[in-house]
Design a protein around this nucleic acid. Structure first.
Length: 420
RNA sequence: GUGGGUGUAGCUCAGUUGGUUAGAGCACCAGGUUGUGGCCCUGGUGGUCGCGGGUUCAAGUCCCGUCAUCCACCCCA
């Protein structure tokens, strides 16, 4: 085959597209309950927007972005995530000046050039929400609750909420020095990967799953013990609010997220049903990002969820997405005259907002009936030469198999009853 | 970027120690009704066995290369 979809991308075919629509509709509905408004931003932005917000030293920026020069030699990048774009739009349109607190959600494709595997594609889809303008831990709790609500309503309950606080600038530097010293003192005992990570992104060492490293890390200074007064009370508040909301969580001091802009609260929803890529949803606070991108100091919090992963879980659970709606009528014309009659008739039926289709291949009646059956038509209309002469059509009920002749006007009056 | 697995019909897969026209189920088409679907029966369409090279009298099968794809590492949604 000469052309195929690019590695790590895929087509969503009709047999699956209704599942996507189902998820999208649920997300839109629930976001509305929480008064989040949709924002749609371009799928490409200036490269710098991402490198500055996500962080020059993150894996995403260092090796995963789809970056290209346009005809004007500007460096552009396909968005690897949406928060940077949302914040850019927030600043560009001065949304903060109009509303002191802004709640936005988005839904759409993201792009990262990683090696594809289960639950990981190069073009993938996320929905997410951003709440900009409040430092109140209430916002953290509400947003976490919102993300669990959506998963819950989609039929996903087998997940664990991992919760941590990675503090602010102040507490982080205090922890960082001691943590690096701790690792250096035991440098030889760590695996080669962790040794490399020490210089690049020391906190990532917490992600290592090798037994040796994990054992040592159990005694390493944890971020959570270095939180400043403000960050600690913030975290305590978040936890108490979650308890009030009846949301179970697992404190996970090893949870560190891959984007540099996070501060204080970070969390992930992980599903044991997935493979190595088990994070359904992740998010946190980013109180410094807006300032970093040229705005005033503005606290914010957000999350994003991976739609392919949600679909994977639902498929594993054999979740039903509701039946694809059935066809109301299938029209079987026999001969040229009948075909012309059918063309006009099907327009009138559709005008009554009923789903209908007809034969386009001049097939035999038997084949047309087969097609009607395949399309799960509730009723079939047969127009042959005899009917044409008599000025009637045959109306057949596909469930009962019963059929009768009806006059054209009589039929049109009858289907009016189906409207709405 | 690294490692491992897998490439045979539209889909899911058989194919013996290398052996002659490469199979099944599903799907599709036609017939079993002259103008009537589902179930059943009969028949049919459909494959350069991923691609290239090599070994051999003989390769879907063995070897090498290459491409694609999946999983894992990494990282994340």
């Amino acid at each position: 085959m000469e052309f195929r979809s690019i590695y790590g991308t895929g087509d969503i075919l009709p047999e699956d597209s209704f599942k996507w629509q189902h998820i999208e509709e649920k997300v839109k509905k629930i976001m509305a309950f929480y008064n989040y408004k949709e924002i749609r931003t371009p799928i490409f932005e200036s490269t710098q927007l991402f490198s500055r917000s996500i962080g020059e030293d993150t894996d995403i920026v260092r090796k995963e972005m789809y970056t290209f020069l346009d005809q004007g030699k500007r460096s552009l990048t396909l968005r690897p995530e949406a928060t940077a774009s949302v914040v850019r739009a927030y600043l560009e349109h001065n949304l903060g000046k109009v509303f002191p607190f802004v709640k936005l959600y988005y839904i759409g494709p993201m792009f990262r050039q990683e090696r594809p595997q289960k639950g990981r594609l190069r073009q993938f889809h996320q929905f997410g929400a951003e709440a900009i303008g409040s430092l109140d831990p209430l916002v953290d709790a509400e947003l976490i609750e919102l993300s669990t609500r959506i998963h819950h309503d989609l039929g996903i309950e087998d997940y664990t909420l991992h919760l941590n606080s990675i503090g602010c600038k102040k507490c982080r530097s205090a922890h960082r020095d001691l943590f690096i010293k701790f690792i250096k003192d035991r440098f030889e005992n760590f695996c080669s990967e962790c040794q490399l990570r020490l210089n690049r992104n020391p906190l990532r060492i917490f992600d290592c799953k090798k037994e040796g490293c994990v054992k040592i890390l159990a005694f390493a200074p944890k971020m959570i013990d270095f939180l400043c007064e403000e960050c600690r009370t913030h975290f305590e508040k978040v936890k108490s609010y979650l308890k009030k909301l009846g949301i179970e969580y697992k404190e996970d001091p090893s949870l560190v997220r891959g984007l540099d802009y996070y501060t204080k609260t970070v969390y992930e929803l992980k599903s044991s049903l997935l493979g190595a890529q088990d994070t359904l949803c992740g998010g946190g606070r980013y109180d410094l990002l807006i300032e970093e991108l040229g705005g005033e100091q503005t606290p914010a919090m957000g999350f994003s969820a991976g739609m392919e992963r949600i679909l994977l879980v639902l498929e594993l659970k054999k979740k039903k997405f509701g039946e694809d709606e059935r066809l109301d009528f299938f029209i079987c014309p026999l001969g040229q005259g009948a075909k012309e009659k059918a063309l006009k008739l099907i327009k009138d039926i559709r005008k009554k907002n009923l789903r209908s289709d007809m034969d386009y291949l001049n097939r035999s009646l038997k084949s047309q009936m087969k097609e009607a059956n395949r399309q799960k038509a509730k009723k079939v209309l047969i127009i042959g030469e005899e009917e044409l002469k008599k000025g009637v059509i045959i109306l057949k009920d596909m469930e009962s198999g019963e059929q009768k002749d009806v006059g054209m006007n009589e039929f049109l009056n009858e289907i009016s009853a189906y409207e709405e």
